[in-house]
């Protein structure tokens, strides 16, 4: 009786061990493929998806990988379907890239925005695929452009390559703050010194 109980506990422990071990292997492999072999062309890479509507069309945009890095290839997948009947857009789509800097395109404040064409894609299995490689980190805008009839469609999507700059506007604001506090402090000390001097002058 006692040895049976020990046996049962041993079997349970064995099951538990295999369950835990298989769980960790699942985390390492995605659908049987090692995670380190995933790239922008894999069928299940991590992605960032954005959905929107424009005119008569419903647009879904996916970036592979979710957080592209400089000098690493990535891909944009664009799905465009009509809102009314769900039919897939069949005209070619041009892809452009623009810098998305603070104040870019603003009159007087920023540089003019000049779009750079990165390719023209035809629909393939319901998807417009556009590859990209960015050499520098930064904030970009990917613009998809197509025309249906006489109507031009221009869809802008944000794309962050590498980490967003941590300084920039924040550094500017903090610098401004320090400058302000130091200036006010100096002016106030001067005012106090002047009033003390005036008082002493008046008393004598």
């Amino acid at each position: 009786m006692k040895s049976n109980k020990v046996k049962r506990i041993f079997v349970l422990l064995q099951c538990l061990f295999f369950l835990i071990a298989s769980h960790s292997s699942l985390a390492h492999h995605v659908l049987g493929r090692p995670s380190y072999s995933l790239n922008e062309d894999s069928n299940t890479p991590p992605s960032m998806a954005i959905e929107t509507q424009i005119g008569d069309y419903f647009v879904t945009y996916m970036i592979f990988p979710a957080f592209p890095k400089p000098s690493e290839p990535g891909r944009v997948n664009l799905y465009v379907t009509r809102i009314d009947d769900g039919s897939i857009l069949s005209v070619p789509v041009s892809f452009y890239v623009l810098d998305d800097k603070l104040f870019s395109g603003w009159p007087l404040l920023g540089d003019p925005v000049v779009p750079e064409k990165i390719g023209v894609q035809n629909v393939d299995d319901g998807i417009f695929r556009q590859g990209f490689v960015f050499k520098e980190r930064g904030s970009y805008i990917i613009r998809a452009y197509f025309e249906v009839g006489d109507e031009p469609y221009e869809i802008d999507f944000p794309l962050q390559v590498g980490k967003a700059p941590a300084v920039g506007p924040i550094g500017f604001l903090l610098g401004l703050l320090i400058l302000l506090l130091v200036s006010v402090n100096l002016v106030q000390r001067k005012r106090i010194a002047r009033s003390k001097f005036q008082k002493e002058k008046n008393s004598t």
């Binding site: 924040i170 703050l177 302000l180 006010v184």
Partner: peptide
Amino acid sequence: PYATAVLAVLMVVLATTCLAL
């Protein structure tokens, strides 16, 4: 999140400027 943080800091800068002046 980045723009949210910038806005938050901007409001502190505005409040600080008004308080200092």
